[in-house]
């Protein structure tokens, strides 16, 4: 039973943040499986035996469908016990901010702000929340701007793992925390860009080009071709994005972390809930957050309270 498993404690959590969406043992298993499949879906040009894949320019679409299914499984597993209304509202509102930030950045030369809040929120609210926030941010943004396409599963998947990773960073506070998060933001947006390009490389570039993917060729050969392709097309863009993310985190990170932590405190994710009879203290509590619906959920005291 997922509920029995000790919730995954990240660095953020140990330093006093609420884990808003706990990651049970099975969810962790699902995430490991999902990431394994994700690696294949993103890096297939280097991994796959092309004889078993018919048409290499269609392969990104097929893997896209697969990723969608895998994401569905991950999310279903994570929300299997139901998600608290507070966590869900937070998720919705933060992904609205992310979705709102996205078109803002697209117009202005590479200033990409999606990861900025994703990293900070993942840090404060834990890896499970970060994962879901990555999914919903990109999904909502695609729906709002009408940008649903074969690239969407890749973007969702990438962002989900960026958020998850932010939640798993080691514990520290103060200036060191900001440096850590800024460095993570820099690295994450770089890797994200590199992988996203990789997955669509065979789709976009003409096979006749000398920067194109050559099915069946040696990996180092393809890798070199890919790096040339990437540096010609999007390296500048990715660098700019990574830099803006890092700079934004470095400069506003502490204020935004404080705002998010304050929201976490106000939402009272960790505050104990107790009903007791009118005679104060004399008799034991009648019930401690009893859940009348009869469905199974880890009692709040067990999941949310720290220590």
């Amino acid at each position: 039973m997922t509920g029995r498993v000790r919730p995954l404690r990240s660095g953020g959590a140990r330093s006093g943040d609420a884990i808003v969406i706990p990651l049970g043992g099975w969810s962790r298993v699902a995430l490991v499986g999902a990431s394994a499949l994700g690696i294949v879906a993103f890096c297939w040009p280097f991994l796959i035996d092309t004889r078993s894949v018919g048409d290499t320019s269609i392969a990104p679409l097929v893997f896209g469908v697969l990723l969608l299914l895998v994401l569905g499984v991950g999310v279903a597993q994570m929300s299997e016990g139901g998600i608290d209304a507070k966590a869900l509202a937070l998720l919705g509102v933060l992904s609205a901010i992310n979705a709102g930030l996205r078109p803002l950045g697209a117009g202005t030369a590479g200033i990409e702000l999606v990861f900025f809040l994703l990293v900070l929120a993942g840090r404060v609210f834990g890896p499970g929340f970060g994962f879901l926030l990555g999914c919903t941010s990109l999904f909502a943004s695609a729906i709002i701007t009408g940008g649903v396409g074969p690239w969407l599963p890749y973007q969702m998947f990438g962002a989900a793992f960026v958020g998850l990773g932010a939640g798993l960073l080691p514990r520290c506070r103060g200036r060191r925390e900001i440096v850590l998060l800024a460095a993570y933001g820099f690295a994450a947006s770089y890797v994200y860009g590199l992988l996203l390009n990789l997955s669509f490389w065979p789709f976009v570039v003409d096979p006749g080009s000398t920067t194109a993917y050559v099915p069946g060729a040696a990996n180092w050969f393809n890798l070199r071709r890919y790096l040339v392709f990437d540096s010609v097309t999007s390296l500048g863009w990715d660098t700019l994005r990574a830099l803006t993310t890092a700079v934004a985190i470095a400069l506003t990170g502490s204020a935004i972390l404080a705002a998010l932590r304050r929201a976490g405190r106000r939402a009272a994710f960790t505050a104990p809930v107790e009903f007791r009879p009118a005679d104060d203290g004399a008799s034991p509590p009648v019930g401690r957050d009893q859940l009348p619906s009869g469905y199974m959920r880890v009692p709040r005291s067990e999941v949310f309270s720290e220590k």
Binding site: A268, A271, E274, P277, D289
Partner: peptide
């Protein structure tokens, strides 16, 4: 339940 706290 939502806000946390004790109700006697």
């Amino acid at each position: 339940r939502f806000t946390g706290g004790v109700l006697a």
